[in-house]
Design a protein around this nucleic acid. Structure first.
Length: 327
DNA sequence: CCGCTAGA
DNA sequence: TCTAGCGGG
């Protein structure tokens, strides 16, 4: 998923405390996908309600969001909109991989190989419309705001940060840096052994000695969700080449590379993404009745657990206006 | 993934 | 008080 720049990106370690009082724009698709992959039984079956509807994402959103709030971190979720035409190849490739994983999951189940079953099951996750809609319904009940992006959710989340409405984007994907995110937080979770990473674009570019445009060019060589990249070029070699030749056009020419993508079109996906500029971010008080009706009545959650979460959410009140907003 | 609990 | 392991829906 996303562009693999891991080998050239550095990060600073962060404590949950460092995020107190800050608003974090959450890459909803990224998180939901993680929840669907990881919140499963040992044989790989996701959590489901009595009607067989998947609830793993609801469990994840409920617990992680309330834990963030309890730590005085203000989450705003950002959902993907319509995917760009250039992404269709990536999407069909993912579908193919998912179906393959599904097949292997069933095979492993037959052989009673639980470890393999779980492994392939997690790769068989799919974000359906129902999963997105139920996620939004839960956030509404919890009083947590979300924004619907026109296209890429990451681009919209980055816009929130640039616009001063959020401090950082929370996502596992390095793509956020290409969209120009000043700060990206990876591994934002609550468990005791978390390894919070803070990626700062300015520091990364300075250390690498390149511009954002050049980082994008490296990504195009490596391959993104929108183009296949060049065989044999990873992040390290991409960096070398871009530093040596300056830009992707010169790299292609000097190295006699065959590429079937238009760098200019792709650069603009990251440099000039379509985003929603008018939006409202308002935290509301959690709605106990809605939470119980939705989670317990409709999706078979335990009432006791839901009430515990409700109490956590209620304890912290983000609805209070800051002093300067009164004038 | 996260919360809870059993056992140290 | 802490941590590993299990169940959640």
């Amino acid at each position: 998923m996303g562009v693999n720049l891991r080998d050239i990106i550095f990060f600073e370690k962060l404590e949950l405390k460092d995020l107190e009082g800050l608003t974090i724009a959450i890459d909803a698709s990224n998180w939901i996908y993680q929840f669907l992959s990881s919140i499963r039984q040992r044989d790989g079956t996701p959590l489901m309600d009595r009607k067989g509807r998947v609830t793993s994402h609801l469990v994840g959103i409920l617990h992680r969001t309330s834990a963030l709030v309890e730590n005085n971190i203000k989450p705003v979720y950002v959902f993907d909109g319509k995917s760009l035409a250039l992404k269709s190849e990536t999407i069909s490739e993912r579908t193919r991989m998912r179906l393959e994983a599904e097949k292997r999951w069933k095979e492993a189940l037959k052989k009673k190989d639980l470890e393999k079953a779980r492994k392939y099951a997690s790769r068989a996750s799919r974000i359906s419309k129902e999963i997105i809609e139920s996620s939004k319904e839960l956030l509404d009940a919890m009083g947590i705001p979300y924004i619907q992006a026109p296209n890429e959710g990451e681009a919209q989340a980055v816009y929130l940060v640039k616009n001063g409405d959020a401090w950082a984007v929370a996502s596992q994907d390095y793509d956020c840096l290409l969209f120009g995110a000043p700060r990206v937080i990876r591994n934002l979770a609550i468990s005791s052994d978390i390894n919070l990473e803070l990626l700062e674009l300015d520091k990364i570019l300075k250390k690498l000695g390149i511009s954002r445009e050049q980082l994008i060019d490296i990504a195009l060589l490596v391959g993104t969700d929108f183009n296949p990249g060049v065989k044999g070029i990873g992040a390290k070699r991409g960096l070398e080449l871009i530093k040596k030749f300056g830009d992707i056009y010169t790299v292609i020419k000097r190295m006699n590379l065959e590429v079937d993508f238009d760098p200019e079109v792709l650069r603009n996906i990251f440099l000039k993404p379509k985003v929603k500029k008018k939006y409202k971010i308002v935290w509301k008080r959690p709605d106990k009745e809605k939470m119980i009706k939705f989670l317990c009545d409709e999706h078979d959650f335990s009432k006791e657990r839901v009430l515990n979460v409700f109490k956590k959410l209620k304890k912290v009140d983000f609805t209070q206006r800051r002093l300067e907003e009164w004038f």
